[in-house]
Design a protein around this nucleic acid. Structure first.
Lengths: 220, 220
DNA sequence: GATAGTTTCATACAAGTGTTTTAATTGCAA
DNA sequence: TTGCAATTAAAACACTTGTATGAAACTATC
């Protein structure tokens, strides 16, 4: 039992520092200074620096995934076991986008931390992301039920592209803002979500991709 | 003048090691051992470790961008100053995809290096990527000429999504293969390119996105 | 073949890292 | 209070890192 106070002080300080300065240049000494605890406390409570980072990331990513599944389940129940593809995609990309974007000055520490995590990709986090496949399979299942005529391969590609657009937009939001000179409003999260869902839906429902027929545009 | 041999031996060794083991756990000592040169040679020839990494990345990324622009220019000239959007997108995403994907066992060191660079994102490389905006503006220009009726914002989003799909597919190719249990053939690069171009084209040409009309799917 | 400029080498440096150790302290139960 | 476990604390440990130094070896020019 005991205080537990030290433990959460470390978590909070670490999240804040990582969010602000990235994983690259935040040391354990920075963290314990910010948290006003002793250096050894990190290893005592978490075992190692990597496990501390992992715990931070897991906590946030579990929250996102839980919300995703909640929305997915609700949608499928409402549709009698089969949800519209837009709604499925919405459940897939909405939570992470909502968790990371939005007006910069009102972004939570957690949000900024997750943005960092998606930009920098440090080993303990990569390891966790690799275990996310089971979670994605649930969406594959729902998408198959929603689009029974679509080939499995097309489904996988559609899922891949949906995640691509969401994650890339999070990770490169700054660049898109700069490129568009502020014309793309990344603070309007629901608009971003709608755009991603709309394109991903098209990708999944448009007339069959010209299969493997070697595109006449091919290279050269 | 002089030999120049040491310099290129370092470049080659570094590229190989970074490609194989990532930036995280390759030290200068690993590199000089692999290259059979003295430790001090790196600082002598490149100034610092970061500048070595930067030179590696710049070399490869200039090659990609040059090829992109070559294709873009050719397409616009052929079309009298206005190229079809598919061809523009093809010039945008084709070179990086071709440079990174393809049968794993015949991937060049350069290709594997670029994959690493897109996965790990180390400071010197991030700095270079941030200067890529001018390059992208050339594509924005071509896209505007190709789709004069499309709003600038839609163009930016289309470009963003095209890059998103290409880069994410490179970066997460392993995961997609695993998720699809090998059914998505990432070795067939031209098929991948065609898929990305096809979806990006739809994103840019489909009936106007329901603007900012708050989607009825909006979360809650 | 001496000389000036370049390149290589062995080695030292200085700083920073996560982790361990060992002892002191605290908090709680008997 | 006493005893015992959980927690905190200070310090040192053990390494690794990139970089700097200064002498040696080489190379080409005159």
């Amino acid at each position: 039992m005991a205080s537990d106070h030290t433990r959460s002080a470390i978590l909070a300080a670490a999240e804040r520092l990582y969010a602000d300065r990235g994983f690259g240049d935040v040391t354990l000494r920075d963290i314990v200074a910010e948290a006003n605890v002793n250096l050894a406390a990190v290893n005592y409570h978490f075992g190692s620096k990597d496990e501390l980072i992992a715990e931070l990331f897991v906590t946030r990513s579990i929250a996102t995934n839980r919300e995703r599944l909640r929305q997915l389940k609700a949608a499928e129940e409402q549709g009698g076991g089969r949800a519209p593809i837009e709604v499925i995609l919405h459940a897939l990309v909405g939570p992470p986008l909502r968790g990371c974007l939005g007006p910069e000055n009102q972004r939570s520490t957690a949000a900024r931390f997750m943005i960092r995590a998606s930009i920098e990709s440090v080993p303990p986090i990569r390891r966790i992301k690799n275990r996310e496949i089971d979670h994605l399979r649930k969406f594959v299942g729902a998408m198959r039920r929603s689009l029974p005529d679509r080939s499995h391969v097309d489904i996988y590609w559609g899922l891949n592209f949906a995640l691509a657009m969401a994650h890339h937009t999070i990770r490169e939001s700054e660049r898109l803002t700069k490129l568009s000179e502020g014309q793309c409003d990344l603070d309007d999260v629901e608009d971003v979500v709608a755009r991603v869902v709309s394109v991903a839906t098209m990708a999944l429902t448009a007339g069959k991709v010209e299969a493997k027929a070697p595109s006449r545009l091919a290279a050269r």
